[in-house]
Design a protein around this nucleic acid. Sequence first.
DNA 1: ACTAAAAATGTAATCAATTACATTTTAATT
DNA 2: AATTAAAATGTAATTGATTACATTTTTAGT
Lengths: 333, 333
Amino acid sequence: MATIRDVSKIAGVSVATVSRTISKPDKVSAKTRKIVEAAIIETDYKPDILARNFRTRKSSTIVVLVPDIANPFFSRVIRGIEQTAQGLGYAVLLGDTQGDRNREITYANMVKTSQADGIIQLDSHIPFENENGPYVPIVNICDCVRGTDIPTIEIDNALAAEKMTEYLISLGHKSIAIITGPVDATITQDRLRGYKKALKKAKIDFVPENISVGDYSLLSGTTSSHDLMQNTHPPSAIFCMNDEMAIGAITQLKKMGLRIPEDISVAGFDDISFAEYYDPPLTTVSQPAEEFGSKAMQTLYNIINKNDLIQKHTFLDFEIIIRKSTGPFKYET
Amino acid sequence: MATIRDVSKIAGVSVATVSRTISKPDKVSAKTRKIVEAAIIETDYKPDILARNFRTRKSSTIVVLVPDIANPFFSRVIRGIEQTAQGLGYAVLLGDTQGDRNREITYANMVKTSQADGIIQLDSHIPFENENGPYVPIVNICDCVRGTDIPTIEIDNALAAEKMTEYLISLGHKSIAIITGPVDATITQDRLRGYKKALKKAKIDFVPENISVGDYSLLSGTTSSHDLMQNTHPPSAIFCMNDEMAIGAITQLKKMGLRIPEDISVAGFDDISFAEYYDPPLTTVSQPAEEFGSKAMQTLYNIINKNDLIQKHTFLDFEIIIRKSTGPFKYET
DNA sequence: ACTAAAAATGTAATCAATTACATTTTAATT
DNA sequence: AATTAAAATGTAATTGATTACATTTTTAGT
């Protein structure tokens, strides 16, 4: 493999000139630039990225921390990150944490050791043992921690849940259950807040038994919905904090002989691609997954390169998608 | 940040001894090892990975080339890769190619420049301009090229398709359509071969119009199935080369007023998590997604580290999962 | 106690780029 | 043509760990 020194010899210039030809061509006269470029081609020179990274203390690599890559919403976000990263000349290191804090820290240390230039975290947890460590460029998206000055990108989860709940109320539902995500997640708390707010505005009493904690899996949708139907006053509508749980719930409710939406309404969250193709097509909250990814990468890029145009807290638009899994409340006959 | 020199000063030994304490502790006496370890803790020394990578020409990073990360089957494979990679001390660079050959080459060059130590390719395409370039550790999985000595990991796709087709034939179906993946993919050709073989064994004539080319998307399942139903002799069963297309097909067929499986049977491929939760639950071919990933990573690790125990061509087990989307053929009434 | 072999440790070169600073060349102005 | 500023180029230090080779210390055997 040819080195910069080989090129400089062939071109009859110094290594500095070769280096400049590559990284700041306008600092080199047109004549020598041509000579050097010819020498680069002749020697088939490819800069040694490892040496460059070592010297410049940059890796042009970022880490994505994701609770679970196999989650269809997250994988779309990551696709958005990856596409934008490619455009900006960054590589994406995948950090599937499976919720494990130690793995988060392992990946965070890759930034501290310059193996990566920054982190995009999709979970509401900051992977630093303590806050007074070295500065680490990080963007927190989708599910964001509060009370730090770390840039965040999210939708207004409380409002989205409020709107969806209002919609269900507008259909005549009074007993609306909710299947949540893990209790310690910010989005769970936000959405629960929005749900309660909508109930309050409609003067519907909040019933604790209408809450079931899930874990975003299909299975937890089935078990949670099963549990909810055992309540003394079973719900006539179930709002799930993601589409998988909604699909799990519908599967279970159908198995119990209930018709969707005639007997019970089910709404989801995320609008994954399957939502539209489910039977019945799922009423859900659409989130701009790819935009989350591209915005996050763009913001992280600005942080790394110290552009001042960083918006600390960005809110993206959501949309209530009304399909066929929700319908008017009907009194029992 | 403390360097190895700081540690050596504190410990009163040479940098070589510190380096050895870290990488080959058995080459260092117990006494000095203790001293050095204490100094490492005192200085909070973390080896500079960039310097190490530069010097050793290794990055402990591998690249995963995937046609689309948002495909649920692929994301499970990647999860398997990532888990195993973590255990082996490797980081995973995500290369979402969207089928773009240039992107594949870009990522392949990262290996040539030592930014990554090897590649796991999930597509039947080898990303080298020509074969006589530098040696690149690579493993080809799921959809594999033929006629090279690159290690592959796959299921026997022809056999799987043959078995599924045989199953549909055993239900009495004679007009069995197939929705394929892209024509140039090895798995498409393999599965098509298995499909034809089963037809031939059952003495059923192969009808070209029963083939519709899809692209693995939900939408292509709907359009392909719609097209197939316009045939002069519409099929009584449709075998789709992945579950998304099967789900798209079922959605479309239901829209056309057909009942699944009473009026028409639909089978998929992959057994993604949604398959079991669909209505009706999908008959499909189960592939061991995570095992693909972990086997691939293990094999790549062996290649990189020149262990000789490399099995060139590995075949994993598949399983025909019979659920409710397929049923006996019934003559039109 | 002496010697040889083995183990432990140290010295200093090395990896290939970038870049601060020094020097030379070119351009502009009078 | 002389002077000065600006542009272009060159020199050589620098980055931090690894490791070949040299040297010292320890161990074992007599």
